[in-house]
Amino acid sequence: MSGLLLLIPAALLLGLVGLAAFLWSLRSGQFEDLDGAAERILHDDDDDDDPATVSRSR
């Protein structure tokens, strides 16, 4: 029974961490462009996203 005193707060804490993470991602605009984000991962941006290359080319 005393295990409950540990497990219930632990469960709640984990849930709260998840909730906080969601609210944070919402606030930081990660749900603004779901279509674009899905495509961006496919971009092979070696040449213009790598800072070293960019500074060389400019």
């Binding site: 462009d33 279509d35 674009g36 400019r58």
Partner: peptide
């Protein structure tokens, strides 16, 4: 990608970001 790349190669452009949705 084409749009962002074309803009980012302009010297004075700091950032160009397109939202596809």
């Amino acid at each position: 990608r084409r749009i962002e790349r074309a803009l980012n190669t302009e010297n004075d452009v700091l950032d160009a970001r397109m939202n596809l949705s």
